[in-house]
Each structure stands twice: as C-alpha cells, then as structure tokens.
C-alpha cells in the first residue's frame, strides 16, 4: 500500500514538473522561485536539525560497541569496535561514514525447512547496494558542479574523464549514473521482495527511493535520450547561483521535471529519514568513546539540590525525640 501511494505521489510531482516546464508562466516559477525556496528550506532545515541535536543533552556515554572494551592489559581489545580514545573514535566514525562498517555486519535470520533451526547468515548485499548508491551519488553531485561554476573546475573535468573512461557513445556514458540507478533499483527491489523488510517499510522509505530514482532517471534520460540545450541549462543554474535568474526557452520540459524533483528532494530532506546525512555525525551511539569505566562523567546539568539529611532532621527535632524516648543516632547534640 505504502509503495503505491508513494509511487502515485512521485508520479504526480513528476507530471507537475513536466507540465509546469511547458507553460511559460509556471516555467519561470519552477525555474526560479521553487529552487530558491527549496534551497532555503534545505539550508535552514539542516541547520535547525543540527542545532536541535546539539542542544539535546547527552549525559552518559552510550556507544553501541561491537567488541571487547579496554580492560586489563592482557585482555585483547577491539580498538575500533569499542574505541577508548578520541582518535580511535574518529577512526570508527570514518569507517562508518565512508565504508558503512555497521551495515557490513548485517545478518539475515532464516528458518530453514529441514528442521526448526534458526540460521543467521551474513548478508552483504544491502551493504554493497548502499555503498554503491551513496558513492555514486557523491560523484554524480560533484560532476554537477560543471553547471554551477564557470569556468568548470579542473577537478570536475578530471572526475568526468575517470567516470567516462570507457568512452561509450556520445555523450560518453558516466558509470556512476548507471550504478546509482542500479543500486537504487536493488534497494527498492529488496524492500519489496523481502517480506520482513516490506512489513517495516513506510511511505517515506518508498518515497525517498522513488524520488531519487526519478531524479537519476530523468537526469540520465536528459543526457542520453531526449537531449536538451545544455548551455541554456548552465545559464539557468548560474543565474540561480548569482541571483540573476534567467529561464531560457530552449530548455526541454524534462529538465524542469528534473529540477522540480531536485527541489522537492531539497525541501523534503531536513524533515525525513534522509537527514541521516548530518545525523550520522551526531549519533551518540557512534561518536562517543567507550571510556565509562575509566573516566567519570558528571551530568553537566546537575544543579545543587536542596536536601534535608536525617542528621539535620534529628538535630531539628532532638528535644522532641528525647522527650518521646526515641533512640538517637547522635547521643549529644551540638546545642546543649
């Protein structure tokens, strides 16, 4: 059900972008105002999310560890699975952010038919699909800098040369575009195919996947199939970047669909699961060293609490306690 509602939503958005790109009035709207609003929402939204996370208290060390913590010197410890120093924590974070180390540990539980025997197997495909998608998308984003800078930075040209190394066709096929779409396709397929994963999948899971697939698909379509005036596209992006928006009429409607879906992605980003991009850096379960047994962590917002100890209470009611013949902790009082 979620898969369908998300698909229909994306189709409506894509059609809106495509049709909007054909009408002269909405073309200006989609080419200028919508991207500005989307970029604004993205920047403010991300900043707001990060500041909100920074303000929330993290009183304890709560790293999720996957190995032996630092203990007695003769016990072998796992440096990066249970980091002790800030340096080890940084390495752990880098491995997580760059290589998705925790996903590499992914397992699959399966009840085999031969008998009531629960088996846990390694399941690396999710890790591979996620890694391929994220790295491809990074390269695709960096390649898009050719539309956002004039002159095109040399590093982008170099990246294009590596990406289009096999020089297939004209314009040459960039492999990261293909691998990005293929990885997204796999991630969607597993969500639909594996019953357990399908059961826990919500609208937002499908929506993000469809949205990214629609963006990648329309980009690929624009590059290799129905081509458009690329100089006009760069004029449009540079106009947006320099706050002198121009919307050339030579740009195809499909481009406006691409642009509109990117705007939707930007605006949707800070309020969805996609915000794991900054979130991964602020996960207390990952970014804290596991040193609770060596360093005492005092709750930073502990304030002085007004207490009334038994000693003080006994002092206060000493006369009455003696009169009632009750036993006292302290025989002679301070007053006398």
């Amino acid at each position: 059900m979620h898969a369908w509602t998300a698909l229909i939503t994306i189709i409506i958005l894509a059609v809106a972008g495509y049709v909007g790109g054909q009408l002269s009035a909405t073309r200006v709207l989609i080419g200028t105002i919508v991207p500005y609003v989307a970029i604004g929402i993205f920047l403010v939204g991300i900043a707001w999310r990060v500041i909100a996370w920074a303000r929330s208290p993290v009183p304890f060390r709560i790293p999720t560890t996957c190995g032996q913590q630092k203990s007695l010197p003769w016990i072998k410890r796992a440096r990066f699975d249970s980091p002790f120093t800030p340096g080890e924590t940084i390495v752990r974070m880098l491995l997580e952010v760059l290589l998705f180390r925790s996903l590499f540990r992914n397992t699959r539980a399966e009840l085999r038919r031969e008998g009531p025997r629960l088996l846990y197997e390694e399941e690396k495909w999710l890790w591979l699909g996620a890694l391929v998608f994220h790295w491809s998308m990074l390269v695709v984003l960096l390649r898009h800098l050719r539309f956002f800078r004039e002159p095109t930075p040399a590093i982008v040209l170099l990246l294009q040369r590596i990406d289009g190394f096999f020089q297939i066709g004209a314009p040459v096929v960039y492999w990261t575009g293909v691998t990005m779409l293929a990885a997204l396709g796999y991630l969607l397929w597993r969500r639909l195919k594996i019953p357990q994963v399908r059961y826990v999948s919500l609208f937002t899971d499908y929506f993000a996947l469809y949205l990214l697939m629609a963006i990648a698909g329309s980009g690929i379509w624009l590059r290799y199939f129905t081509k458009t005036d690329i100089v006009g596209v760069k004029q449009l992006t540079l106009g947006l970047m320099t706050f002198t928006p121009v919307v050339p009429t030579t740009v195809a409607p499909l481009f406006f669909m691409h642009l509109f879906l990117v705007s939707v992605l930007l605006a949707y980003f800070p309020f969805s699961k996609l915000v794991h991009m900054p979130g991964i850096f602020l996960s207390p379960t990952r970014n804290l060293p596991n040193n609770s047994r060596a360093v005492r962590h005092i709750n930073p917002w502990n304030y002085p609490v007004k207490v009334h100890t038994y000693e003080e209470w006994e002092e206060e009611f000493r006369d009455k306690l003696i009169a009632a013949g009750l036993p006292l902790d302290k025989e002679s009082g301070n007053h006398v």
Binding site: L43, F148, V231, Q235, G239, M241, T242, P245, V246
Partner: peptide
Amino acid sequence: GITYPIWFNNAAGVRAEAP
C-alpha cells in the same frame, strides 16, 4: 561547502551569459 557555488560565483563576478 554546500553554498560554495553561490558565494564563489558571486565573488568571482560570474554572470549567467551564454557563450
């Protein structure tokens, strides 16, 4: 970093002109 195209192009005086 993410707004690099905005501030860089404006600082460099780039204009959205076709060649």
